Amino acid sequence: MTGETSPLFRPLDIGSLHVGNRIVMAPMTRAHSPAGVPGPDIAAYYRRRAAGGTGLLVTEGVAIEHETAVDNPDVPRMHGGAALEGWSRVVEAVHGEGGKIVPQLWHVGPLWGAMSAVDPALKPMRPSGTWGAPGTTSYSRDYVERARRPTEPMTDDDIAAVIEAYATAAANAQAVGFDGVAIHGGHGYLLDSFLWDSTNTRDDAWGGDLQRRVRFPAAVVAAIRARVGPRFPIVFRFSQHKQQDYTARIAEDHEQLGVILRALVDAGVDVLDASARRFDLPAFAGSDLSLAGWAKRLTGAASMAVGSVGLGKSLRESRIDGDAPRCDNIAELERRVAAGEFDLIAIGRLHLAAPDLAATLRRRATLPAYNRAVHEAHLI
């Protein structure tokens, strides 16, 4: 294939959103927004990716208005006049380059305290008061020992307040001009913690079997859908792995996965963002189909893959063993997109290395080299 005939450069419509190609900038936590307010540097950072030709930008995680949503004061917020004004400038900059952008709404849930010191008087939001059974993790032993101490489970009032905070944040995003909204429902954070049986041992309407464990994330989606209307796109990130344990799973087979994902799509999700360490990793034994591929097959909704595009190591592996070498897996990516296995591909680290990554892929040029020390530390 040439760059012009690549399936990566076919347009796609999702509700009211039209994207010119299938390349997405993956959400990546940056913590460069003092007091939660994105400044001109953040606007410039996203503008450069839009100018480079990326079809859709998904922002770093953005805090909803809840006192334990995020534990780092430099993570941006989706509430308050100054933060919303800052986001309006980001949106204007991206739209000025012909780009499209959605914010990823975030509540860290059980992982409150992982990024920075927190007020011990504040109650972290945990379905059952547990952090989760630790396994393969990159967290320090000291943090894990502190985090494993049980806390009070979420009450019905807590659940109602968080649902409302998500809906309000989505309405704020729509009001400042974003092209849709994304929800972080993976990696052991709040919504995911209701899905995982290690963190959700409730025996009420919000816990038990899979149908009940998915009710809280589905209620968040439904509340957002009711607030933003029928055509405003909703993207939902989910994962098998957790930061508490990279080997954890919310579904042991595709039937269980279907129970979860169909409930989310029925509630209003348009795009299922299947977070995995490699975009081509088989999700279940006996099939080559990726997690994103199963998401699309099981629901009929659009799906997005992510993980190690152009790189020979996952993010976790590169943090342990050093920078990831180049890996030209673009032909395999194109094969899967052309076959309709998934619709979009989210790329993180290479977007840090090269704001014009989409143009590089269109030209079939050499992929950029990623250097964590340089590219994670600066707003290139």
Rank of each mutant, 00 (worst) to 15 (best):
T299G: 07
S308Y: 08
L333I: 10
H79R: 10
H95G: 02
A354I: 00
A377H: 10
E334W: 06
H32L: 06
A305P: 01
D203S: 12
G80H: 11
A292E: 04
G98S: 12
A369M: 09
D203F: 13
D119K: 01
S198E: 14
L56R: 13
M304E: 01
K242L: 09
R225C: 01
R362P: 07
Q256P: 00
F284E: 00
R49K: 04
K296E: 04
V58G: 01
R372W: 14
S193C: 10
G348A: 13
S88I: 14
L191I: 04
E97G: 04
R22M: 04
S314Y: 08
R349F: 11
I159Y: 11
A117P: 01
P150A: 14
I101F: 05
L379I: 13
S193P: 11
R49V: 06
I183G: 09
Y189A: 02
L122A: 13
D71Q: 13
P127A: 05
R335I: 00
D71C: 12
A171R: 15
A223C: 02
A160D: 06
R49Q: 02
V271I: 10
G135L: 03
A263Q: 10
V176F: 08
D245T: 03
T29H: 12
F342W: 04
E4G: 08
P368E: 01
A182V: 06
H32A: 14
A133F: 08
E85D: 15
G340D: 05
G185V: 03
D270E: 07
L191Y: 07
F284G: 04
V24R: 13
D209V: 00
V108Y: 11
R48L: 10
L315D: 10
P27M: 07
P233R: 00
T137Y: 03
Q244Y: 03
A147F: 03
A121F: 12
R47F: 00
A331G: 13
I23A: 02
E332H: 12
A83Q: 14
E60I: 08
G293R: 04
A338P: 00
F342K: 06
W112A: 02
A305K: 02
M25T: 15
A167K: 09
G109E: 09
G86F: 12
A285D: 15
T199Y: 04
A43D: 00
L111C: 09
L210T: 06
R30F: 09
